[in-house]
Each structure stands twice: as structure tokens, then as C-alpha cells.
């Protein structure tokens, strides 16, 4: 059976080679490159969580950075106040639950208030500024403008027996790689489940799903909470690779994650990673070359991609000859 699949489906070969290449990456490149790719994979998980709601249920979250930031802050604060060994695991759980709770609260007010479409985006956009203000003024807990940095270093492994320091680029990279694959598989499982099908039906026609007897606001809250939890998880993974500061919750970061998903192709899951890596590497390349002009180029590129490639890279690939390479379901 498996042999058969491998024979007929070149995409499994491509995937296998890609996986091996990703595994070998830290062995052949520098620590800087490793931590860079690890950071971009974290952003990929963040974009994946947005694709779950934007691409599959039509919820436009223009404040998605709130949940990424909330995850990172929850992780940092937990690491700071839980001084025992193995606190990292609790901190990560905390970093998933806090954004989830915020998502449920927000979802309750907005989805049950029948706020949808672009208006939902506008509300979440306005909330970004508010959450940022809250973080800045609660400086005792969050470090305020300076950001949060004096917490215990996150460690994986079994406390007392074998421990891995997440500040090491290689450890962080493999952790993030495993997390990215796990999140991707989870997202795929969700969208292919019965629940996922209903969610996609909501995207197509909310009223009809309602007439079929589904509780649409409830379902929306559920998928929103899952996405927020995943965003929070990516925020937690970001902690050893970046820096916790109010900048994580900026409008810019919320906008850029939408761009990642749009460039990769919304509603494709893998597109979230493709778009994130493409845009992030492009940005890194441009800003290395043009210290001042790079931002202008990014703006122009964003406009062009949206005008020329409405379906994103994966959508483009889907339409043309690369059909067999990308592991998406043909629908």
C-alpha cells in the first residue's frame, strides 16, 4: 500500500526530501541561520493559526498579534513566577490557555453579537491598541515599555536528568520544527474533520448552515479559540528566539501575518508556511541589501502580490504544473 503511494505520488518523495533537508539544516549552517529559520517557522505556526480562521471559516482577525503577544507574555510571566524545574511545560500550557480564554471572551461578544466580515477585523484592529496599552501600564507584571526579560531560561527535557536549554539555536530549531509539523497535522486533521467541514460551510454561507440547525456563533467561537490557542503557542515558542515587548502586539505585526497568509495562499494550510518563509526571507534579504529602502520595496511588493497573485503562491502552484508537489487536498 505504502509502496504504491510512493510510486504514484511524487509529492511524498518531495516531502521526504524536504523533511530530511529541514532536519539537516542546523548541521550545515551557522547558529545565526538556524535561529533565523527557527524564528520564521514560529511565524509560520502563527500564520497557520490565522489561516485556520481566515482561510477556513472566513473570520478576518486583524488583531491576531494580540494572541501571539498574549502567548509570549503568558510564557514569560509564568517562567518568571514559577521558579521550580520543569516550569517550562506549565508555562507553555499557560501560554496556550490565556490567549484561548481571551479568544473565547472576544468571540462571545462579537460572534454572538453577529459581528462578521470586515467589521470584525476593524474591531480586533482597534483592540490591538488597547491590549498594548494594558501591557504598557501594567509594568510590574509585564516590564512595560522595556519588555520582559528577567525570567528563568526555558528548558526542555526531564528536570534533574537531562535538560536542553532552549536558548541554544539547535535545540530551539528542532523543538520548533517538531511543533510546526505537529501544528500542521493538527490543523489538517481539524479542517478535514466533520467539524472542519461545517466551519467551511459557514465560510461559504452562514445563513444556510444556521438553517440546517447548527449553532453558528458557537462553532465560530470554538474554531476561533483553537486558532487563538495555536497563536499563543507560537508566541510561547518565540520567547527563546526573540524578545517579549509591546512591539509584539503592534498593528504592523497583525498586518504582516495577513500578508504572509495572503502571499502563501489562504485556505491551504501549507501556504501559511510558504508565505511566511518567502516574505520573511525576502525581507531579510532586502533589509541586508538596502538599509533604508527595503521597507519601501516591501510595501510595493505587498501591493503587487495582492494585485497579481490573488490566490497566493500555493494557489498559483495549484493552478499550474506543480499540482503534485504540494500536499493539499484537491477540493
Amino acid at each position: 500500500m505504502i509502496n504504491n503511494v510512493l510510486y504514484k505520488q511524487p509529492k511524498f518523495w518531495v516531502l521526504g526530501i524536504l523533511f530530511l533537508a529541514l532536519c539537516a539544516f542546523p548541521q550545515v549552517t551557522s547558529g545565526y541561520q538556524t535561529s533565523l529559520l527557527a524564528k520564521f517557522l514560529v511565524f509560520g505556526i502563527f500564520a497557520l493559526s490565522l489561516d485556520l480562521i481566515w482561510g477556513y471559516s472566513g473570520i478576518v482577525n486583524f488583531g491576531h498579534a494580540i494572541f501571539f503577544g498574549a502567548g509570549a507574555y503568558a510564557m514569560g510571566i509564568a517562567l518568571k513566577y514559577l521558579p521550580f524545574a520543569g516550569a517550562t511545560y506549565f508555562a507553555v500550557i499557560f501560554a496556550i490557555l490565556v490567549p484561548m480564554l481571551i479568544g473565547i471572551l472576544l468571540g462571545y461578544f462579537l460572534f454572538y453579537g453577529r459581528v462578521g466580515g470586515v467589521f470584525f477585523g476593524v474591531v480586533t484592529l482597534a483592540l490591538t491598541g488597547v491590549v498594548q496599552s494594558i501591557i504598557i501600564i501594567s509594568s510590574d507584571l509585564t516590564g512595560g515599555m522595556n519588555g520582559l526579560f528577567d525570567f528563568a531560561p526555558p528548558k526542555l527535557g526531564i528536570p534533574g536528568l537531562i535538560e536542553f536549554d532552549l536558548y541554544s539555536p539547535t535545540v530551539a530549531y528542532y523543538t520548533v520544527l517538531a511543533a510546526a509539523i505537529g501544528c500542521y497535522l493538527l490543523a489538517r486533521y481539524i479542517v478535514n474533520s466533520d467539524f472542519g467541514r461545517v466551519i467551511q460551510a459557514i465560510r461559504e454561507d452562514e445563513d444556510r448552515v444556521e438553517y440546517l440547525g447548527y449553532n453558528v456563533p458557537f462553532l465560530k467561537v470554538v474554531i476561533f479559540a483553537i486558532a487563538c490557542g495555536m497563536a499563543g503557542f507560537s508566541g510561547a515558542l518565540y520567547v527563546p528566539l526573540g524578545f517579549i515587548s509591546p512591539d509584539l502586539l503592534s498593528i504592523e505585526r497583525s498586518a504582516v501575518v495577513l500578508v504572509w497568509v495572503a502571499v502563501g495562499g489562504r485556505g491551504t494550510l501549507i501556504g501559511a508556511f510558504v508565505g511566511t518563509l518567502a516574505v520573511s526571507y525576502m525581507q531579510t534579504f532586502l533589509s541586508d541589501q538596502f538599509v533604508v529602502l527595503w521597507l519601501l520595496f516591501i510595501g510595493v511588493l505587498a501591493i503587487l502580490v495582492i494585485l497579481i497573485w490573488p490566490t497566493g503562491i500555493v494557489g498559483f502552484a495549484k493552478r499550474y504544473s506543480l499540482r503534485s508537489i504540494f500536499p493539499f487536498k484537491q477540493s
Binding site: 551557522s30 547558529g31 533565523l36 524564528k39 526573540g242 524578545f243 512591539d247 533589509s287 541586508d288
Partner: peptide, 22 residues
């Protein structure tokens, strides 16, 4: 060496790490 940090801690860390490590 001169790098732009986009007035953001994230890019700031990335660029200064690059200047040191690479």
C-alpha cells in the same frame, strides 16, 4: 557595519545577532 532595526526589538535582535555571529 550598519543595520536598520525598523525600530523593532524583533528585527533589532535579528540584525545584531547577524552582525556578531555572521
Amino acid at each position: 557595519l550598519a543595520e536598520d532595526d525598523n525600530t523593532s526589538p524583533d528585527i533589532g535582535i535579528q540584525k545584531s545577532t547577524k552582525m556578531i555571529q555572521a
